[in-house]
Nucleic acid binder design. Structure first.
Lengths: 229, 229
DNA sequence: GATTAAATTTCGAAC
DNA sequence: GTTCGAAGTTTAATC
């Protein structure tokens, strides 16, 4: 882990170059390297994905003339990816051995949304009765399938962000389910926390209803003492 | 920038928790925070996207009893996202002021592929003549449009990774172009460096040709002295 | 191991 | 500023 003034060249899936500047360089135990600036989000300016090897090279005469004091040659162990780090000066250098990480515990992603919607089908429409979540079809599972009070079924696709490809996916499901005499007629509902305008337009064109989900509200209603049943 | 033994809680678009372990913590000037382990790729275990504010809180009695020496409360300036970093012990601490970064110079992405294909339409099919790149339609631009020797046109969709949604996109374009008497009949070609089996199957079903592109070869052929014209 | 779908996606460009 | 597609996407689940 060091703070250094450096320039970087990467050749692999694309070619990229970072001009001379002061940056934070992190070398992990697996050989991977991250080069961060003091801005942007979590994505480094440049990096090498593990597993890879780092070798420190003595700069040649030209490089020394340019002010290079040290060159790191980082190569990927399987692909032909390579990163050359030309270090001009090191401002800070720190090394520390971290142990294995126990890893992240998550909750509240799409599976949660799906469970909440299945438990509270009234947010989709009145009188719906759950058939099942992850209803299997030949082209993949439908997120939620419900029986409609007027007869037939409702296929519900749930996303955190509702995008155009979600509408396409749902269209394919409906088309397939429509062929089953036990299920048809099949309505389709696209439910998401956000729905892009483009997706909304396509959904309308395909006669698919859109529902914007409020995760907070769903979660709140799901607390047992707040539920009416 | 510090190496510390800590546990982390995040509440925002989801809830997440990191058990006690030694990790690398990076605090950038814009208030953003990254928490890295000594493994994985460039994605941090946990993070806060800028802009945000960091305040250091004195731990309460319970926390002190648990061994917490310092608590960071990182809040996003616009959303309700919040991250709580409970520091038990600091192993290394370093601070350094980096200047602005001149940024990355890239070459060799989709735009390049598109240019190379437009210049070497023979990789798609014989006798094709370029109409134009980024041919505009009501639902977005077609990557490359060419005139076919047998009459009619060819719509070419170019991707680095050819996936099912690329085929859907191309299908919509062809459908639209087909309505134009000056263009029809319209053939569709899906060209990518890699094409997923699922995409290939769908393309076949839709009567769309698939072409796998070799970036190296295209680039090599594009060097002026290697070209035949 | 290959393939597919999701991501606290991030990033950049076009509108 | 919003929207939309691409990313050296990465990552996790599923076949």
């Amino acid at each position: 882990m060091l703070v250094a003034t450096c320039s970087v060249n990467y050749a692999g899936r694309l070619n990229a170059h970072l001009p001379l500047a002061t940056r934070l360089i992190i070398a992990k135990k697996d050989g991977s390297v991250l080069i961060h600036s003091d801005g942007g989000s979590y994505k480094p300016l440049n990096w090498m994905a593990p597993p890879c090897d780092v070798s420190v090279i003595t700069p040649d005469a030209d490089q020394v003339a340019d002010g290079v004091s040290e060159v790191w040659r980082v190569t990927h162990q399987k692909t032909a990816d390579m990163l050359i780090l030309s270090i001009h000066s090191i401002h800070t250098e720190v090394e520390h051995d971290l142990g294995d990480d126990p890893g992240l515990v998550k909750q509240g992603v799409e599976a949660d949304l799906q469970r909440l919607v299945a438990d509270q089908l009234e947010v989709i429409g009145e009188g719906l009765e759950l058939v099942r979540r992850e209803f299997p079809t030949a082209i993949g599972p439908v997120d939620v399938l419900a029986r409609a009070p007027e007869g037939g079924t409702v296929a519900i696709e749930i996303k955190r962000r509702g995008d155009i490809d979600g509408v396409e996916q749902l269209t394919r499901y409906r088309e397939l389910l429509q062929r089953d005499p036990h299920l048809r007629p099949v309505r389709a509902v696209f439910a998401a926390q956000e729905i892009s305008p483009q997706a909304r337009t396509l959904a309308k064109d395909r006669n698919i209803d859109c529902v914007v989900l409020d995760y907070q509200a769903l979660q709140h209603s799901d607390i047992p003492e707040n539920r009416l049943f």
